[in-house]
Amino acid sequence: MSVLDTFVANIHFIGAMIIFVIGLYMVIAHPNLFKRIIGINVMSSAVFYFFVAIGAIADGRVPIVEGTVTPADYINPVPSALILTGIVISVSFTVYALSLAIKIHQSYGTLDQEKIVEMTTRDDSYD
């Protein structure tokens, strides 16, 4: 099997890893809190993608009972069911983080973390 075949066979895993790293870079390198929340969303999407790709098999069928299909043809439905719960948690987390971001913007007037750190440390030096 050549390198290209290996690449094509594992395309979902490679793609998921690249997206996870892009999301991690967004969380680490951007000082803007809003961009960081989007970055965490990208990271969680990459993890969900990885999980669903684990459950898939070549030429698999959707796990719905219809007619005479042998169960060996179905994809593994357990990762899909887990990921549904994960999406729910991801949405709740996003809304909670965004509400905190609104509160931070009301208090400091900015969402840039470097400026916020500057303000808070300057306040400490006055004490």
Partner: peptide, 25 residues
């Protein structure tokens, strides 16, 4: 990848609800 329920949820939530809430913020 033959996970239609996850695809449906992601299309409703990821492209709908999350986008609108991010825009509202």
């Amino acid at each position: 990848l033959k996970a239609p329920d996850v695809a449906l949820t992601e299309a409703a939530v990821g492209a709908g609800i999350t986008t609108v809430i991010l825009l509202a913020v």
